[in-house]
Design a protein around this nucleic acid. Structure first.
Lengths: 136, 136
DNA sequence: TTGATAAATCAGAATGGTTCCGATTTGCAA
DNA sequence: TTGCAAATCGGAACCATTCTGATTTATCAA
């Protein structure tokens, strides 16, 4: 996923092209790590001082629905990041800065054998810690 | 973990023994699945109609800190359940009723090889779906 | 280029889960 | 039995998020 593709998806679905939307996407693409809605709002306020909280939350929800962003909950707060291109994988997430590293291990095949007969909807495998920059 | 052990831990740490505390633990032990703070509060209100919200939340936090309960976040709400005895394992969690099934697969050994040099703090591996009772 | 229209945004109120606070009650050790 | 710290209470406060109704704007057809 990159900025151009995100904008294409937006247009493809008939959503309008606004400065706020593009700048939000741009910021998320640049940062390339998990950010809270608040952090994104604060950044947006630099460009659009009067931007409404609602606008940021609404667009974050929209992007997530369109598969442009992925969402996870850390410490009771939703965090968002640009979705990765690489096939199915999981993340190491830095608890300090939100930076992620891809993990290409997924035990779901094995697990499904243990759980046959159940309706599996989803799974979450995340590793939490501190990245090289954030380890003292 | 069982009710007796939980009470022992509470006393060992010098915490007081109150009806509210014991009945909360009793309910959690009986249910043996993930419950929201609200669900626990509602049950407690049956026995102690005037119980304060604060009492339930404070005790849930205490129990979690003491290793009596485990906590996970589902759909933006904290859920609690009696901690399991079996060694390190993960859970299949029913999105409808909170019932859990133990998963004895953990890919962390493999993952650590991919992540050498990083400070790993924790990890979460959960499978979400519907249990036999909740699948239509 | 203009006008119509639905979508996007805004400001602010509302919500919902959770935590904090100061006052009161209670378990427990002396 | 008493003193005191801990527990509880009631209610306000908090914080992230969502909703609402009014206003603005992107888009597209004429």
């Amino acid at each position: 996923m990159n900025l151009q593709e995100a904008i294409r998806i937006l247009k493809e679905h008939g959503y309008k092209y606004t400065g706020r939307r593009v700048d939000m996407l741009e910021f998320l693409a640049e940062e390339d790590r998990y950010l809270t809605a608040r952090e994104i709002l604060e950044e947006m306020r630099e460009i659009y001082p009067g931007i409404s909280v609602d606008t940021v939350y609404r667009n974050l929800a929209l992007y997530t629905e369109l598969g442009i962003l992925e969402e996870t909950e850390l410490g009771g707060e939703k965090h968002y990041r640009f979705i990765c291109d690489a096939g199915h994988h999981h993340h190491f997430i830095c608890l300090n800065c939100g930076k992620t590293l891809e993990i290409h291990v997924c035990p779901m095949e094995e697990v499904k054998k243990e759980l046959h007969g159940l309706t599996i909807q989803d799974h979450k495998f995340e590793i939490y810690g501190y990245c090289h920059d954030c380890t003292v």
